[in-house]
């Protein structure tokens, strides 16, 4: 079985983020970039499919050349090959534009399963997996908190607000995972060393047959055009509890005054 895992490079959440005023994209130079943490859960699930079904796993990253260490990082978990789509024309794509590039890249591969993260920690749109599924005319079994592959059938527990739906379809299928699905292992030293020599293909838009008019900032269906820092919050009331219960009474008064009781 063949599995593809699309991964994204994102700014480290703990670092300070800036938007570049020139092109209104995340200023990658100002912060440390990491493999999107949500993708680690998809990678772990792929590693389990390797162990259980002998799956062959390729990571796919759409992004600039400088994101290559992120592909290697993903490979260090024990995956087999990398594929990076790099092209100046991709810059400024919105979620649907990115989905178009991913879909074209997938179309050129053979696969049974694609394992996305349910969201990226920077954009957090959650749109990419379902949009890719639509472009490829495949089922989108998203928000998986549990995944099972049995022969030609994939079963997913799709998390929602009240619990989950058990859903099923035949392969090939598009799946996105939530972090409840597993506990990712750390890459082993052997994995880190091996990742350096794993095959890594780089493709351009032309290689994929994507017309530059269909992607990038010019083609973005949704564009952000203004941004501002959130206004700072006024300091609140902080009281210390001395064990007498007065602090709780003060809070209850405050809540009553604001009509929360």
């Amino acid at each position: 079985m063949k599995v593809l895992v699309p991964v994204k490079r994102v700014p480290d959440t703990a670092g300070e983020k800036k938007i570049d005023p020139n092109d209104r994209t995340v200023d990658r130079e100002s912060v440390e970039s990491v493999l999107c943490p949500v993708n680690e859960f998809a990678i772990e699930e792929a590693v389990r499919l390797k162990e259980q079904h002998g799956a062959e796993v390729t990571v796919l990253l759409v992004g600039p050349e400088s994101a290559q260490p992120i592909v290697r990082k993903a490979l260090s978990y024990g995956l087999d090959a990398g594929l990076q789509v790099t092209d100046d024309g991709i810059a400024g794509s919105d979620a649907l534009g990115t989905a178009r590039v991913i879909a074209k890249a997938l179309e050129a591969e053979e696969f049974d399963l694609v394992l996305f993260g349910n969201q990226s920690t920077d954009a957090r749109t959650c749109l990419v997996p379902a949009a890719v599924a639509e472009l490829l005319d495949l089922p989108s079994l998203t928000y998986a908190r549990h995944l099972e592959v049995d022969g030609d059938t994939v079963t997913v527990h799709r998390e929602h607000e009240e619990g989950w739906d058990v859903v099923q379809s035949s392969l090939p299928a598009i799946v996105s995972v939530v972090e409840a699905i597993n506990e990712p292992r750390y890459p082993s030293f052997k994995g880190i060393m091996a990742a350096k020599s794993k095959p890594l293909a780089v493709k351009s838009l032309a290689d994929l047959g994507v017309s530059p008019e269909d992607v990038g900032s010019g083609a973005a269906a949704a564009t952000m055009y203004e941004f501002a820092d959130r206004p700072p919050k006024e300091a609140g009331t902080i009281v210390e509890d001395d064990g007498s219960g007065t602090a709780a009474a003060q809070l209850a008064d405050w809540m009553a005054e604001k009509k929360f009781v």
């Binding site: 649907l96 959650c126 990419v128 997996p129 949009a131 639509e134 989108s140 998390e159 269906a221």
Partner: peptide, 22 residues
């Protein structure tokens, strides 16, 4: 919300719409 974003994403591809979430 999560599952509804999927509906919007798939329909947006069909209708060539733009989507802004949240």
């Amino acid at each position: 919300s999560n599952h509804t974003k999927d509906v919007a994403a798939r329909l947006a591809i069909r209708l060539d719409a733009g989507v802004i979430t949240d």
